[in-house]
């Protein structure tokens, strides 16, 4: 099934190119390269309306449809921070939503080959998207989905994450060592083992900056999954809004867990994400 769809997609992309249709907004700034950094996130959800209501209430995001495509841009203070994709347009049941993060690479085609060589799978072969650059959707060796992107507009510059913007990412992996090997092979990360009192913890570093962490997946019978983090100024207030808008608090703040500064929630369609208060001056920054 997947291969036949891949052929269809390749044929259509080859026929149409990227000269038609709406343009994605620029991901970053010309001349900025941050290979290995997470530079964009897309939410795939069967209920975009519920997602907009939820994330608008939770983080103050506003939304702007990209034409009649079923793709909606989420904006923070007028700047794009994420995309929302209507899974219903696939014509297939998507029972639970998920966030797909896009990791910057110098060449998507090379990275896609590295994904396969490292035991992963390509779901959407490298293709040009107007305004964004070359993109592929892949799955790591344990089933976690993510995107590869080579931005045509440069990558976002390093800045302190704003409140209600993206802060961090953690991969819940069945085998952290195997996952670290995979991501090191594909992205050339420096992998730092240990930390956080957990010998299986792995930090992925690129450009002298911690980009993400890998932790043991505590969920039985589930694939690995990337969990995005959003910086908030008040976790308790965020969780109250989360529950009021149909989200679920999976893990409430715990004083023993980074001083109660983070929580794990599911959005109304089941997409997991975490919220965290974060002060670079008191937490050690990056």
């Amino acid at each position: 099934m997947k291969s036949s769809w891949g052929l269809v997609m390749l044929a259509v992309v080859a026929m149409t190119g990227c000269q038609r249709g709406p343009q994605f907004p620029p991901l970053g700034e010309p001349g900025v390269s941050r290979h290995g950094a997470v530079v964009w996130r897309d939410l795939v959800t069967p209920d975009p309306a519920a997602a907009m209501e939820f994330y608008g209430e939770l983080f103050g995001w506003t939304f702007e449809p990209l034409g009649d495509t079923g793709y909606v841009l989420a904006l923070l203070d007028g700047q794009p921070v994420a995309g929302i994709l209507d899974a219903q347009r696939t014509g297939r049941p998507v029972r639970s939503a998920l966030w797909l993060q896009a990791i910057s690479v110098p060449d998507v085609r090379d990275a896609a080959r590295a994904v396969v060589k490292a035991g992963g799978t390509i779901h959407y072969k490298p293709s040009m998207l107007a305004g964004r650059g070359r993109v592929a959707v892949v799955e790591d060796a344990e089933g976690a989905l993510f995107q590869l992107v080579t931005s045509s507009s440069g990558d976002p510059a390093v800045r302190e994450p704003a409140q209600n913007n993206w802060l961090w990412a953690e991969l819940l992996a069945g085998d952290t060592e195997r996952a670290a090997t995979f991501y090191q092979a594909v992205f050339g990360y420096e992998v730092v083992a240990g930390g956080e009192g957990d010998p299986s913890y792995r930090t992925l570093r690129a450009g002298d900056e911690a980009q993400a962490a890998i932790l043991a997946n505590p969920f039985e019978d589930t694939r690995s999954a990337w969990i995005p983090f959003v910086r908030v100024d008040d976790v308790a207030a965020t969780l109250a809004r989360c529950e009021a808008k149909g989200g679920r608090v999976v893990v409430a703040p715990d004083p023993a867990r980074r001083r109660g500064s983070l929580a794990l929630v599911l959005d109304p369609s089941g997409a997991p994400l975490a919220v965290q208060t974060w002060n670079p001056e008191t937490t050690g920054g990056r």
């Binding site: 769809w5 149409t16 297939r92 998920l98």
Partner: peptide, 13 residues
């Protein structure tokens, strides 16, 4: 092509 990206991501999802 972006529409097919949406389809592909949805299928993967």
């Amino acid at each position: 092509s972006w529409r097919w990206l949406i389809l592909a991501i949805g299928m993967a999802a």
